[in-house]
């Protein structure tokens, strides 16, 4: 059989080897993907420590409104009279805001890098590892940001709270989660579970990023991440649910 075959060129012309990297990026540690990951890990750790303290503070509501208000007041008078009113709290707030901003900056920068790295998507793609928590980190982060904005407007500034700003923290909390505002409790529940999922991957991931993980520690790290996440979710959900269901009045 003799057939004339039009095969095209056996190999298509290949681009000559790149002399210089195609994408120029800001140099230095913070310009590198690894450096940005370290930023995510360190700022994430700051936020986890904050969450633990925040959760413990919230649980004061179970000891009564006065106990909760005293705790809120104590936060503002820490280090007094050595330092003026609200000194330490303001410092902590600045550290926290800087952490949030840097965490977001690194996350956005890394996701942009990731989308540039895969311009053509797969027709079929099947995940082979880990679970749900790993794959919703970016979506989860954005959700948590929206929630934090709502949360500050609600319980910190009182803008969307029935008690308004000129009220005690405990009043804002108890009125805010009143059974008539069940949908607020629902928003909080969804958001807190999202935080839990975020930390489920985030906590062990931070250890990996900082180079402190190895094959003998993975199990312990994952169990710790899951345990911290569960404790935080339960601790954060207890007060709003207790108020909505009338346990705390």
């Amino acid at each position: 059989m003799t057939a004339t075959i039009e095969r095209g060129s056996a190999t298509a012309p290949v681009n000559s080897p790149k002399k210089a990297p195609a994408r120029k990026r800001p140099g230095g540690f913070l310009g590198s993907s690894n450096g940005k990951k370290v930023v995510m890990a360190v700022t994430g750790a700051v936020m986890v420590l904050f969450l633990v303290a925040h959760m413990l503070g919230n649980l004061k509501i179970f000891f009564g409104r006065d106990s909760f208000n005293e705790y809120a007041h104590a936060l503002r008078t820490l280090l007094e009279p050595i330092a003026p009113y609200r000194t330490l709290l303001t410092i902590l707030e600045i550290v926290l805001v800087v952490s949030v901003v840097m965490h977001m900056w690194a996350a956005i920068s890394l996701s942009r890098r990731a989308s540039h790295a895969r311009p053509v998507k797969y027709v079929a793609k099947k995940s082979q590892a880990n679970g749900y928590a790993t794959h919703i980190m970016r979506f989860g982060g954005a959700t948590i940001l929206l929630f934090v904005i709502w949360h500050l407007l609600d319980l910190t500034f009182g803008v969307v709270n029935p008690e308004g700003f000129n009220s005690t923290p405990a009043d804002r909390m108890v009125s805010g989660f009143d059974a008539s505002r069940w949908w607020v409790t629902l928003i909080y529940a969804v958001a807190v579970v999202m935080v839990g999922l975020h930390l489920r991957h985030g906590i062990w991931s931070a250890f990996q990023t900082l180079g402190w993980a190895n094959r003998n520690r993975y199990r312990a790290l994952r169990v710790t991440a899951a345990a911290v996440s569960v404790v935080l979710v339960v601790g954060f959900l207890a007060p709003p649910l207790a108020i909505t269901f009338g346990v705390i009045k």
């Binding site: 993907s33 690894n34 940005k36 990951k37 370290v38 890394l110 890098r113 990731a114 540039h116 790295a117 895969r118 995940s127 082979q128 590892a129 880990n130 790993t134 794959h135 980190m137 991957h201 062990w204 991931s205 250890f207 990996q208 990023t209 900082l210 180079g211 402190w212 993980a213 190895n214 094959r215 993975y218």
Partner: peptide, 27 residues
């Protein structure tokens, strides 16, 4: 792109390179 520790790589690696190599690199 940057690593987000999803573990997808080690799951498909034909040689089963473990994920802690990445921790070593990070360190």
């Amino acid at each position: 792109g940057g690593c987000t520790n999803t573990g997808e790589c080690t799951a498909v690696c034909p040689k089963g390179i473990p994920l802690d190599a990445i921790a070593q690199m990070n360190s």
